[in-house]
Amino acid sequence: MKRTLTRLLGGSLLALLLGLAPLGAVAQEVEPINVNTASEELLTELPGIGPSKAAAIIEDREANGPYESAQDLTRVSGIGEGTVANLEGQVTF
């Protein structure tokens, strides 16, 4: 009897935990990244931005001043309209 109860409770607990697992993923929201203050490491978390483009973004903002919009990122070599479109909602200025 004790063994049956233990199995039943263990199975119920497992089912409950598995049922709640997706809620954690839904509840998480990612804050937009400020491209005028972000480090190279943080910039690489953006879609289409690898280490070399992240370094180029930093180099460009230091040489030419802060970005005012995502469109301004096109002044960086290798960042075009497609990349800018993918960044919508993920960056701030």
Rank of each mutant, 00 (worst) to 15 (best):
D72K: 08
T6L: 15
V84T: 05
L43V: 08
E40P: 03
A55P: 01
G80K: 12
T6D: 04
I33T: 13
K53Y: 04
E62L: 15
I49W: 02
N86Q: 13
G82T: 15
Q90K: 15
Q71R: 11
G48Y: 06
V76A: 05
M1Q: 14
V84H: 08
A38T: 01
S52D: 12
T44G: 00
L16Q: 01
N86M: 07
A54E: 00
T92C: 06
S12D: 03
Y67I: 06
E68F: 11
L43G: 03
N34C: 03
E59I: 10
N36P: 03
L18A: 09
Q28C: 06
E29G: 08
T74P: 05
N34I: 10
I49S: 04
K2C: 05
G10T: 12
Q71M: 13
I79K: 05
V91G: 01
L13N: 09
T92Q: 03
S52I: 12
V30D: 06
E59N: 12
V26M: 09
E68G: 15
G80Q: 09
L23A: 14
E29M: 13
E31P: 05
G50E: 07
G48M: 04
G48Q: 02
A70K: 08
I79E: 00
E45T: 14
T6Y: 11
L14W: 07
G10C: 09
G11N: 08
L20F: 10
